[in-house]
């Protein structure tokens, strides 16, 4: 069985040993990487953030991550749960950071708070009927409501199946729960569990690879792992190149500033 505590948190460029130790001893990391360990501290809930040892120069962040706060979620437990679910979709591994270290939970939080969360550019008039799958999204729920119900059901199903909250499960158990959601095996009144799963998967991948402007893809690490060069103005002299080109990625921030 995979032991989450054994994961090499050191591979996350922003994690330092003392913090890792703290996470272990505090118990936050049980069952998964603590969501807030992504970049800079989040540990204010324990009142210890200020007391954490200062990062060494090599590990220091250029600036405070002001977007590491919640626009949508009101309950830290929900945010932790979301983070752990995204980490199972896109886990940290030898290739590099996973969803949490990339800031994906913050990305999703911000999306749920914005116009995508309320399906603002979508047709929302009734009547609502369930159609055939090829007719697409027909739920009367908005995206943010799908997440609310889905996250609630994650714990309910985990309790039924393993007698524990989702965040307390080990990685394999969490995968089992998510697979049940993916396969529509979880009964949620008014919602197909696969719809929640698909939105979770879709937004996780978005958060990994969208421009860092949106809160995920921290340090363009998603792009770096994929060897994707991000925002480049011209490849006119490179289009015929037969060798693979290693190009340092740029982001919209570089375009704008």
């Amino acid at each position: 069985m995979e032991k989450k505590e054994d994961q090499k948190l050191e591979t996350t460029e922003t994690t330092n040993n003392s913090r890792r130790q703290f996470l272990k001893s505090s118990g936050i990391a049980v069952g998964g990487i603590a969501v807030g360990s992504a970049l800079g501290g989040i540990l204010g809930m324990y009142g210890k953030e200020e007391e954490a040892p200062a990062a060494t120069p090599a590990e220091s962040q250029p600036a405070q991550q002001h977007d590491h706060a919640l626009q949508y979620f009101t309950n830290r437990a929900d945010f932790e749960k979301l983070g752990q679910a995204t980490e199972r979709i896109f886990p940290e591994d030898e290739n590099g950071p996973g969803a949490i270290a990339l800031g994906v939970p913050y990305y999703i939080d911000h999306q749920l708070a914005g116009k995508w969360g309320i399906n603002a550019k979508e047709y929302r008039q009734g009547p609502f009927f369930e159609g055939v799958p090829e007719q697409g999204y027909q739920s009367q729920l908005k995206h943010h409501q799908v997440f609310d119900l889905g996250l609630e059901a994650l714990d309910k199903y985990s309790q039924e199946k393993f007698d524990a909250l989702f965040v307390a499960l080990d990685g394999e158990q969490q995968d089992e729960v998510l697979t049940a959601f993916e396969n529509d095996e979880v009964k949620i009144p008014g919602l197909r569990s696969s719809l929640f799963f698909e939105l979770l998967r879709k937004t996780t991948i978005e958060g990994v690879y969208a421009d860092p402007l949106y809160g995920g893809n921290k340090g363009m690490a998603g792009w770096k792992m994929k060897e994707y060069p991000g925002v480049q103005m011209s490849y006119a002299d490179k289009v015929e190149e037969t060798e693979f080109l290693k190009i340092e990625p740029k982001s919209l921030h570089d375009t704008h500033n």
């Binding site: 979709i89 896109f90 886990p91």
Partner: peptide, 11 residues
């Protein structure tokens, strides 16, 4: 479609 192997292969 997701998880460790998906990540490695999609990269």
């Amino acid at each position: 479609r997701w998880g460790k192997e998906f990540k490695a292969q999609s990269l």
